[in-house]
Nucleic acid binder design. Structure first.
Lengths: 331, 331
DNA sequence: CTGAAAGCGCTAACAG
DNA sequence: CTGTTAGCGCTTTCAG
């Protein structure tokens, strides 16, 4: 099965290359009759324009790169779903590039090398420990960037994120208003919602109540490690409320509480984050903060294409809304 | 920042295009001195060879497409990890394409269209309800394919899968040998391990014991639906053993059992599949069958590149090994 | 409305 | 060991 090219079509249809090109690119200056004739030949020959050649000629690949840290949260799947769906309707292709957490410097260089060589039109970056370096290196090549999970904005850049500060500010405030102030915050590495800002949200709420907050503990992302940690922790600590940066840790807390004879929510309330499947599978079911992961992916792709096509952009920073989902682990 | 091309390098280094091309392609016929000179210029000018142009010239994109059904299991993440890591060391790029479960016919056509137009070198397909159609259409363009989760093999095709039949055959046999024969099998849509073969494994084991097996129930992939289903189910059924096609359903069974006052594993044993995080987060922890998802991804990519580069291939069908992980939900 | 021709940036014989 | 010269398949002025 020989590859059929634009030449074959042009010959077969008795028109020039240019005309065929115009037809497949939807130019409207072609006479309807000719267009039909060309279209017929295209279909008959099953001609599929070579995107690579087109990419060379136009210096545009309609290819977008998505970069995410390998060991990141399970939500990449949904996020990719959002990105994928959006890319499909917007006629873009998506390449993925995973980075190790190690984030060696030459790892980043290697990544940038790949991105530039493959001439992708733009990049979607997930917030991670090396974000600043990545942005700097990539943008030095004039490559448009959209970041998911952190706030950036510039001529050729944009970002999609949830207001992390607000999440914890709201949660803390509502408890403080009720006179509940013994809140413990647990967080594992989790980059979709910025940890530093979550902490700031707590601090702000406490401050406004004339208190200070510094009950922050880092835990492992591995349940096998966080669970025993909590079991131990609850032997000597009994916070009124446990808030976790990710559902998995919240479930660990719930299970560890049970192990220690602590009743949830009667003795201790637990709140997770991300509204993952975990939250309905545990017992009691978990109150958690929903973050619209799928949408964030779709929005990122959309924003990037706007930048690429010089479409009008309301804002280079898009804040998506979170939502507290009440279940059984809180009163 | 103007793009620097091979012309710039050749001029600056005082050599011909061909020589520069040889250098960047690692041809060893170039004199060391010239090579060094060229290399120096490349570095100085920060020249990054345009893969698109190279792709056009060589009719090879070093681009591999990965296609997976959108709503599939959460393991795509790990699988993509394996694919990503392998692609990095093998110098390939990976594009992803999600398909809806709906699997409309023109959806598939659209997919094929994209794959062909973008001139990817090969495709990695996940087993799904439309696999046969996909394979047929894609391979009609002479495009190499590797399938994950089903068995296929041909000149330009290969597959990576786990022996599903064996999994259930082994499990069932071990119970039947102990005189335990009241086993219920629950499965949701789950394509990494073929459901039909899982059932066959049961049947074979039962048959060899002079019995027949047909205790198969389909359940929803959504915990919110499967859980209440099980709660209800256990009101009238008390199998000795519950085996689920995916951990999530096993957890639903465990939780529903507790709800019904059934003790696990004393009154009923439960076994899941995939060894997901769910399995350690539930209570009791779940005995489950581990499937090497990450490896399957890496192997798929590797096999595909072997096909692409005409490397010797031991077998076009690679069976990966599963492993029963015993935890608390079984005796 | 359509065609001719010059690229896009790189590879691959073929000479030398 | 190195240079010359056609392409790879499509887009895009520029004429007509």
């Amino acid at each position: 099965m020989k590859k059929v090219t634009i030449y074959d079509v042009s010959r077969e249809a008795g028109v020039s290359l240019a005309t065929v090109s115009r037809v497949i690119n939807g130019s409207n200056v072609v006479k309807e009759a000719t267009r039909q004739r060309v279209l017929e030949v295209i279909k008959r020959l099953d001609f599929k324009p070579n995107e690579v050649a087109r990419g060379l000629a136009k210096s545009k690949t309609t290819m977008i790169a998505v970069v995410f840290p390998q060991a990141l949260f399970a939500h990449v799947k949904e996020m990719i779903g959002g990105i994928g769906d959006a890319s499909r309707t917007l006629k873009y292709n998506v390449t993925i590039h995973t980075t190790d957490d190690i984030g060696e410097d030459d790892m980043i260089d290697e990544l940038v090398e790949k991105l530039i060589k493959s001439r992708v039109d733009g990049v979607i970056l997930f917030n991670n420990d090396n974000l600043a370096t990545e942005i700097e290196k990539i943008s030095s090549y004039d490559m448009p960037i959209v970041v998911i999970g952190d706030r950036i904005s510039a001529e050729n850049q944009g970002s999609i994120y949830v207001d992390a500060r607000k999440i914890t500010y709201e949660l803390a405030t509502s408890y403080l208003d009720k006179g509940v102030s013994d809140i413990a915050f647990f967080t594992a590495r989790q980059n979709l919602v910025k940890k530093e800002e979550l902490v700031e949200g707590f601090k702000q709420a406490y401050e406004e109540h004339g208190l200070t907050f510094d009950n922050v503990t880092n835990v492992s992302t591995h349940y096998e490690e966080s669970y025993p940690y909590f079991v131990d922790y609850f032997k000597t600590h009994r916070p009124q409320v446990v808030i976790a940066g990710y559902d998995k840790e919240a479930v660990a807390a719930i299970n560890a509480a049970r192990e220690n004879g602590i009743r949830v929510p009667e003795d201790m309330e637990v709140i997770g984050m991300m509204n993952t499947t975990y939250s309905v599978m545990c017992n009691p079911t978990l109150t958690t903060v929903n973050v619209p992961v799928y949408n964030m992916g779709a929005l990122a792709l959309r924003l990037l294409t706007k930048i690429l096509n010089d479409e009008p952009i309301e804002s280079h920073e898009v804040v998506v809304k979170h939502l507290l989902i009440k279940r059984e682990s809180t009163k």
